[in-house]
Nucleic acid binder design. Structure first.
Lengths: 341, 341
DNA sequence: GTTAGCACTCCATAGTCTTGAGTGCTAACA
DNA sequence: TGTTAGCACTCAAGACTATGGAGTGCTAAC
């Protein structure tokens, strides 16, 4: 059976209705509120077909229909009309240019959560691809130095490094100069064996210290899973279908622990095509605990290699159009702000 | 009416029972499992008295009794036997000395939550009382510098400061020396007008820059409400009395937003007597959203002026003995580790 | 002062009815 | 051949009604 235009219209109407109300929608509802003037009986016939095609289902006999995952997928891929975009003024999501990336991302998550009524996550750019702006060593005591690293985009990271050798101010100063001259402008991925050998040679008697430092620094930048900022976890309580049973606990736990979110971010990064927004419906989600949700992600790029992911998690009956629109808008804003900086 | 010994024993038994089961406890239960050999009828008589005294209540006629807030308070103040402390090996809460305070506190919160099955919060020490270990300025671009501040206890903070004047490496270097020589060893509270005047005089033509810097630094240390680390928010789902209605949402929101927690931390700091553990039962809690919970807090001290708060939030029928014991233990461990460092 | 016994209360649970929304099918219609 | 009216049927949700059991308060006896 194929999906002719009328069936498509009916499916669209069913889904639209269900997104709004969350209640199964019956034939009479469709026959009334639609531009297609058909009796409920006709709608019923079509509905039976749509059900046979696996696009909608009944929670039980004598109930209206609700979309299946397959139905949502079709809607999202083909039926949904994007860009009923409001003017940017109305959608007061205006991002101000903030100096610390951390603050920007936190605000972003909060704004999105408040605007959409869903739960949001924003991952910081992967630091392993970020270029080093400069690095600053400071002596803490005889056996430890504080390394502060400023990355492209004003991302600041720091770590305390224990050293075998005793070190003094002089050495720290020297190492500072040395490391900066070698590493500035590079990302962790650019630091290869050849470079390290050269650097150690240059360091002379302090080559072991340099080695320790480099180790700790790359550790910090690679190991530390990218920071993820979240907001609006309690929004899930607004959707009964997400709070029954253990679901609420599982979901909130996922957002508290953040490990699962990493999975999500990674998958989204891998799947991304240029500037594309991805939608995971139900079981399509890479995260088990979100199998009753839909997840919409977008990759943002603040500059060369500085890419991260913004995600919105909500019920399967989320307002996809609004979410996708909002995300596109946001990407656009980020773009213009950061390209003209 | 006064609380004779027998009444006290019965009350204790009732509460113990209720803490375990969460079910109203009836006279027969008490008459059985207790060392006092009394029939249920006698217990009933005593119970009626305890109810009259406002220590226990019936959720409805023909139900067992549950403790009132007043009953809990009496239990906590006088009846509870602390220090059924297990040996420290058993209670595997061993804290390792971690270099970054942030990590330590995060781990602390996690361990506590896992150990107690309640929700925990740990506030970082108030930075305004922390002594400055050193400060490091680095030039970012013509109009901004990165200020990294290392406080006592290896707490690292950083901020980016915009300056009116254009500055170069030389100036940064000079300011670095100047500020460090003046400020090292002081806390924000120690920096008074006199000191600032002297500092500005010393800075000569860069006095305005110095002013900007000092402003931004104190802003960072004072304004930023103390960081609060939380863990185990989803533990509240283990206690049905905390999840009915909107309660779960409210509570989790409090832990997500953290503003309310600040309130809690502040109050707890104010009320603290030397080394004391505080217990807030129900409405005694300074935070409205926790009016159905009990909150146990303890103030820790890592060194001069470096005090923070550890809190445990759970249902009113929490295992007070265990929680208090665990907290005391923890304080002890923190003490020994940090005093011998 | 303590206890056995008894009548009473009230929640929880399960069972029964009723209502209403919605369906599928059939037959008539354009 | 597609559309529609009509009708019997299904099922969840809500209201209402026993029924059982846990627990109480009171009284009278020990």
């Amino acid at each position: 059976m194929e999906l002719d235009e009328r069936k498509a219209k009916i499916l669209k109407s069913i889904i639209r209705n269900y997104l709004e109300t969350g209640e199964p929608v019956g034939s009479r509802t469709i026959s009334k509120d639609d531009e297609l003037n058909l009796s409920s009986a006709t709608i019923r016939n079509e509905m039976a077909d749509l059900e046979e095609m696996g696009l909608i289902m009944q929670p039980h006999t004598s109930a209206g229909r609700i979309p299946t995952d397959k139905g949502y997928r079709l809607y999202v891929d083909e039926l949904m009309e994007e860009e009923r975009r409001e003017s940017k003024e109305e959608r007061n999501m205006l991002i101000e240019r903030v100096d610390k990336l951390e603050t920007l991302l936190t605000n972003l998550a909060k704004m999105l959560a408040a605007n959409t009524n869903y739960t949001t996550l924003v991952s910081a750019p992967q630091t392993s691809k970020n270029k080093l702006r400069f690095l600053q060593l400071s002596k803490v005591d005889e056996n430890s130095v504080l390394a502060v690293i400023m990355l492209e985009g004003n991302m600041v990271k720091n770590t305390i490094i224990k050293t075998e050798n005793v070190i003094d101010e002089q050495i720290v100063l020297k190492l500072n100069l040395l490391l900066n001259s070698f590493l500035t402008g590079l990302s962790i991925e650019d630091i290869n064996l050849g470079l390290m050998t050269k650097l150690k040679a240059e360091a002379g008697e302090y080559s072991t210290v340099v080695e320790e430092l480099l180790g700790a620094i790359s550790q910090m930048l690679i190991d530390s899973a990218p920071q993820i900022y979240t907001s609006g976890a309690t929004n899930i309580f607004k959707y009964p279908e997400l709070t029954e049973g253990e679901k609420a606990s599982e979901l909130i736990n996922a957002f508290e622990e953040k490990e699962a979110l990493n999975e999500l971010v990674t998958t989204s990064m891998q799947n991304k095509n240029e500037n594309e927004i991805q939608i995971y419906i139900g079981n399509e989600s890479p995260v088990q605990s979100m199998k009753d949700c839909s997840v919409v992600t977008a990759s943002y790029e603040l500059g060369e290699g500085m890419t991260g992911v913004i995600g919105i998690v909500g019920p399967k009956r989320m307002d996809y159009e609004k979410v996708v629109g909002t995300l596109r808008d946001l990407m656009h804003q980020l773009d213009t702000i950061y390209k003209n900086k």
